[in-house]
Design a protein around this nucleic acid. Structure first.
Lengths: 195, 195
DNA sequence: GTCTATAGTGCGATAGAC
DNA sequence: GTCTATCGCACTATAGAC
């Protein structure tokens, strides 16, 4: 794997960083490619050298963020007698990432409602995100720890709770370190799923 | 309350209907005011007679939808010994509306990520939507039926589960009448909240 | 790879007749 | 209230020099 020269990577990364900032503050459609280039300190045409279109830029940013998130989640060797504790660690890692990277989390929500990207592409990227969760649910079901609801329904429910919980903490930064709130968040998730 | 002549109301309503259809299929930003007028069978300028701007049209549509939803939820005189059953009825009414009015529900999700409308305005409209839920939670907490988590956290969590559940059913229409799925959806919600 | 300059397009909103 | 016609602007993407 040949590493690109820093100079090359640099402007491309600056464009991605600026795009994220502006997208989150103004919305994707309301952010012009020209303003992204200006914010990144590069020329207008340079953006289209690195990304063939605005849509491609959005997709590249989306993929890089989902990859960043996936790296944050460190899977365990699942054990039945401490599954709840393991679930809490995974859950907390996910929440932690979303709160620290509130802008990235916000952008992902925007992308989910961005019609210029096909649902197919978005679903594909999203499926890779929570690949670990179905394993955990299936394991818990086989050991009679987790309720036998339909798998996809549970995955979607978990995703919904993840979004609402991380947004809640993002909107109330003073509560991020509050154990009462952090435990309440996980308890709701876990109780919904456990037998 | 003086009723407007049908003719007057008609074109305005046609514009709102066409806007909803096009917004959901193409996204709000990607839908031009001209295409809305054309789809509604009225002239371009007529749209700006009824709505001073595109933004005002979006807001009017949003408000009318939230009002429509609120009318669907019929509150109960809460009783401690049948609170779960009452919660299920309210929950099912909400899910029912969202599935039947999938386009309206979808549009509301788009609005939540629509930066042209101020967060303040959106929050105000949203607060009126689920006004009944805090009452139910508070009642359940005082009768030791519902867990003592922070109120706003529970409201947000319920909203998140409502969105993910209704989307799940919308994406799997054949399951809408399936009692197994319908009960699993409510059980996850209720278990998350109950003591 | 990066720049400047601009082509080409489509949009929101207005003006004014009926 | 509804129409036609159009203005002015901002945007994506390209062309071509360096």
């Amino acid at each position: 794997m040949k590493t690109q020269t820093p100079a090359r990577t640099n402007k491309k990364q600056q464009l991605l960083d600026s795009a994220l900032t502006l997208f989150v503050n103004q919305g994707i459609d309301a952010t012009s490619t020209a303003s992204i280039a200006k914010h990144a300190g590069v020329a207008n045409g340079t953006l289209f050298h690195h990304f063939p279109s605005k849509e491609a830029l959005v997709l590249a940013l989306y993929k890089s963020i989902k990859q960043d998130f996936a790296l944050q989640i460190k899977p365990f060797q699942l054990e039945a007698n401490q599954l709840k504790q393991q679930a809490k660690q995974v859950w907390d890692q996910a929440i932690e990432w979303a709160v620290i990277n509130a802008d990235k989390q916000q952008f992902c929500l925007q992308v989910s409602q961005y019609h210029q990207l096909s649902s197919q592409v978005k679903a594909q990227v999203l499926a890779e995100e929570f690949g670990y969760l179905p394993l955990l649910i299936d394991f818990g079901q086989r050991h009679n720890i987790i309720a036998n609801y339909p798998l996809q329904l549970m995955v979607d429910n978990a995703h919904g709770q993840f979004i609402s919980s991380s947004m809640y903490l993002t909107n109330h930064p003073e509560l991020v370190q509050d154990t009462l709130h952090r435990e309440a968040i996980f308890e709701m998730f876990w109780k919904a799923f456990s037998l």
